[in-house]
Simulated scan of single mutants.
Amino acid sequence: MQSTAYEIYAIKYAEHERRARENFIGGDIHDGHMAMDYFVWVVRNAERTVVVDTGFDQAMAEKRKRRIIQPVGKGLARLGIDHEAVSDVVLTHLHYDHAGNHHLFPSANFHVQEQEMAFCTGRCMCHPELNHPYAVEDVKQMIDRLFAGRIRFRMPEDELAPGITLHRVGGHSDGLQILRVWTERGWVVLASDAAHYFANLDLQLPYPVVYNVGDMIEGYERVKALSDSPAHIIPGHDPEVLSLYPPAFDDTEGWIARLDLPQRPVTSQERT
């Protein structure tokens, strides 16, 4: 018997204008506009609230030439969440767009794969090709949390709580983990950067920022196996998420979506 089902929310906090060829190894033969959205996620029921990833702030947005739409703290507040009281944050990995905003969660424990911490503090960071998605200040903050007793290292296959499991898939980074969440509509997988876009899964074309291409491609199969159907997979950066799923509230269209509810009816304009 499953635990009480969870609600899941995707909060868009930033965006970046891109071309399709930037999102696939080898480019895309139908190159065109293919923007990237940046999300954090909330998983909650009556017993607990878990924040998944922490995004980046305005200073990092300016440094990386990204555009903040709504600060992460504002999105959490719209869901009635006091960020200072959050007790559990899952970091899918420690790239700059998933592990910033250090001021928001002073009381939280951070759940991370041990392999990710070893990766971003080890010899691979000697290479610009591998260290550029990380922000030094984010890694330093994680070391501070480690010595403050606020890091919880997770096993490659682990249970965070009844109805929430964690799974290391690697690929994009060596310690990338995804979440499987029990909802009223079944098992939903928050794929994070195991699949940036639906198209990475559909076309089996890896995203160019990658540590291990083999692990990334095998990660696509793992994401599919853990979810109840393709409609239960949530990619990490695809703007279509906000089109496919209903808004959390009337005033959050295009900003905060409800992922534990069924997808909205597909029109001829949407993905086939």
Rank of each mutant, 00 (worst) to 15 (best):
M1C: 05
Q2G: 00
S3K: 07
S3C: 07
S3F: 00
K12T: 07
E15M: 13
E15T: 09
R18V: 10
A20F: 09
E22D: 14
N23K: 12
N23L: 13
G26L: 09
G27P: 13
I29Q: 13
H30S: 14
D31C: 11
D31N: 15
D31Q: 12
D31E: 15
H33N: 13
H33E: 15
M36L: 10
Y38K: 08
Y38R: 01
V43Y: 04
E47Y: 04
T49A: 03
T49F: 05
V50W: 03
V51G: 12
D53C: 11
D53M: 03
T54S: 15
A61C: 05
K63Y: 07
R66Q: 12
I68D: 11
Q70T: 14
L76N: 09
V86L: 07
V89S: 03
H95I: 05
D97V: 10
D97I: 03
A99K: 04
A99H: 08
G100P: 08
H102W: 00
P106Q: 03
H111P: 07
E114P: 00
E116W: 12
F119Y: 13
M125C: 08
M125R: 03
E129K: 00
E129M: 10
L130N: 03
E137T: 10
K140M: 05
Q141W: 08
M142Q: 12
M142Y: 14
I143W: 01
D144W: 01
R145Y: 08
R145C: 04
L146R: 10
R150S: 06
P156Q: 04
P156R: 11
L160K: 02
P162F: 07
G163S: 09
V169N: 01
V169I: 15
G170R: 04
D174G: 00
I178R: 01
E184D: 13
V189D: 11
S192W: 06
A194W: 10
F198T: 00
D202G: 02
D202M: 13
P208R: 12
Y211P: 03
G214H: 13
D228P: 11
P230G: 04
I233L: 15
I234A: 11
P235N: 04
G236F: 06
H237E: 10
P239V: 08
V241N: 05
V241Y: 07
S243W: 09
S243I: 07
P246H: 03
P247Q: 09
A248F: 02
E253C: 06
I256V: 15
A257P: 02
L259E: 08
P262T: 09
Q263H: 08
R264P: 01
S268W: 12
S268N: 12
E270R: 14
T272H: 12
